[in-house]
Design a protein around this nucleic acid. Structure first.
Lengths: 206, 206
DNA sequence: ATATAGTTTAACCAAATGGTTAACAAAAGT
DNA sequence: ACTTTTGTTAACCATTTGGTTAAACTATAT
């Protein structure tokens, strides 16, 4: 029983890893079941033994990835940290995650764009939808208290998220056009963990 | 002869418009030739009469789109405008383009990600590669002259591009999670034409 | 009117692709 | 030992999909 379970899990894991690799680079439409099987070093039929069909396999992978990507938002957004610390934490945690997992944001955004309805209602449970309300209120409060420059909270939110995530989506473009290596890119992202909060802080100062 | 030419161009145009619609929403891999034919209201064989194969059709559409998206960068980056005006112009022109064409940035980024080599060497001529060098030097100069806060030019560049483009890539996410309509989204983007330069300006002030 | 050249279509084809089947191997349960 | 369940494979199947062909249609030139 022990060996079987082990083997079973190994295969299942191998498949998921392979599927993750193929799906995240090729997208749902571009991914081939045969490629996933090859990548996992198994027969194509075995894929269907573990995961009913392409849709199911994709959903499993996507959900796993999306859960790395999104729920973190809520935890930070709804925490009781002061605004600036919240921003620092959000930026740092996201960049760490994405340096380890550079395809993640592209993959997730990609599939949301392809079929927003399916994503929102079917794949994403209503539970972990990011609720930025608290953060937005917090910003509004700081503005009203006169502690930061007047800014519409939504713009600040968009600025923060954009500066954090976009470089990873545009990575091929940036590395190519700036003439930098992947390693240098990661170093720059590392710097951004401090640079972005400093930039925002400076922009908000009255 | 006149009518014939007219007809020819009409069909060719109809095909391109249909192809643009299908490719930009489904991506290269997800697009079906039959769907494009249907969308254009013609027979599938006629597609191949005008455009040899899927690759050629895609390339035509992609090139058209990419040329809307990128060459503008160079014109602005290499102009002789003062730094802040450059930023203002970049942001405003891009947002205008993307409001009219919201799938553009996602589509372009998507296909660059899928196959960077093909994109860079085959599709993209060496001519119109964005050359940010001049802008980067300009920023460096402002820093050294002490007119703006110390910042690595690359970060400033990334911040500007990110804040401008990302909201369009994340549009489905933003509209859903912020509970806004497409119209409201566009209004917010309209505001950003002033908000982003102001934000950057404020961040750079010493 | 008739030939000609360009345009459009229905029917067809071959390859790719997601998915199934039936047989076999390896463990686990008895 | 032997039966049952689980894991794995090779071969196969049905559908989808990109692409072709040959015939029909249309407009123009002679």
């Amino acid at each position: 029983m022990v060996n079987k379970r082990k083997k079973e899990e190994q295969t299942s894991e191998k498949i998921l890893a392979a599927a993750r690799k193929v799906f995240t680079t090729q997208g749902m439409a571009g991914a081939r079941m045969q490629d996933i099987a090859d990548e996992a070093g198994i027969n194509k039929a075995l894929l269907h033994y573990y995961y009913k069909d392409k849709d199911k396999l994709f959903e499993t992978v996507f959900l796993q990835e999306a859960q790395k990507f999104f729920p973190k938002i809520n935890a930070i957004f709804n925490s009781d940290l002061p605004l600036f610390e919240k921003i620092e934490k959000f930026v740092a945690e996201y960049i760490d995650e994405m340096v380890d997992n550079p395809y993640l944001p592209w993959f997730v955004m990609n599939e949301i764009n392809r079929d927003p309805e399916r994503f929102m209602y079917h794949i994403w449970g209503k539970n972990n939808l990011p609720k930025p309300a608290k953060l937005l209120e917090q910003i509004e409060l700081e503005v009203k208290a006169g502690r930061i420059r007047r800014i519409h909270p939504m713009h600040l939110l968009m600025n923060m998220i954009s500066m954090t995530i976009f470089p990873f989506i545009g990575k091929p473009m940036f590395t190519r056009n700036l003439g930098i290596t992947g390693k240098q890119f990661n170093e720059i992202m590392e710097q951004r963990k401090k640079e972005i909060p400093a930039f925002i802080m400076s922009a908000l100062k009255k």
